[in-house]
Amino acid sequence: MLTSKEKEQIIRSSGADVTKCMRCGKCSGACPSYDEMEYHPHQFVYFVEKDQIEKLLNSPSIYKCLGCSVCSERCPRDVGPSKIVEAVLAMAVRRQDENHLKAENIPGMVEDDTPGQLLVSAFRKYKK
């Protein structure tokens, strides 16, 4: 089976070895954002292995990951699901006009007490 360029890019960009996954699901048992997500950490790993990247790229799940790394920390095989999620997210926002967060929308999202850290972090994650 030929490997798609997308899969190759995800593997390269994440530095994760999806073949090490033994499908235990501990990542998804640990994920604090599980209920917010359509696809869950273990599915990110599995879909990348099965080369179904498009599904992930188009899923709102990529914006629901908290980047907390708990899935990778507890992974018994050092696969690192969070690294995969981040690589897919990066691929999505690197598409032309695909910035998930746009500067013009920010004023409506900010309150007086919003810390700069929140804006900067969100921009880093959601915008190229």
């Binding site: 235990c24 699901g25 501990k26 990542c27 998804s28 048992g29 640990a30 994920c31 708990v70 507890r74």
Partner: peptide, 8 residues
């Protein structure tokens, strides 16, 4: 029996 793993 549940196919899965405990996270915490």
């Amino acid at each position: 029996y549940i196919k899965g793993m405990v996270g915490k």
